[in-house]
């Protein structure tokens, strides 16, 4: 396996989508290639930090007030 080959499999490798044989080939390459080892490490981290970002964002206070006023008939319906 060349570095080019590894680049093509990077997304699937990090996403755990490769069959065992290909996975092993990649792992063997990484063990002997510091460049690709570094690439896999940083690529993996890019995926991980995205998942760690907040999934909600507080509404700006003025916007929340406007929204509540607009939705008032529905919001007090219960």
């Amino acid at each position: 396996m060349t570095c080019e080959d590894l680049h093509k499999l990077l997304r699937e490798f990090v996403g755990n989508e490769l069959v065992v044989e290909s996975r092993t080939t990649v792992e063997v390459h990484i063990a002997g290639c510091p460049h690709c080892g570094t690439l896999v490490q940083s690529y993996t981290h890019v995926v991980r930090i995205a998942r760690a970002l907040p999934k909600t964002r507080p509404l700006p206070a003025a916007f929340e007030a406007r929204l509540r006023a607009m939705l008032e008939p529905e919001l007090k319906d219960e």
């Binding site: 460049h35 570094t38 690439l39 940083s42 981290h45 930090i49 760690a52 970002l53």
Partner: peptide, 22 residues
């Protein structure tokens, strides 16, 4: 090619500063 990243392997909570950069 790049260099090795200075990050913990299991970092799941981001510092506010990091989140801002991202």
């Amino acid at each position: 090619p790049g260099k090795k990243w200075n990050v913990g392997p299991e970092e799941t909570v981001l510092a506010a500063e990091q989140a801002g950069i991202i």
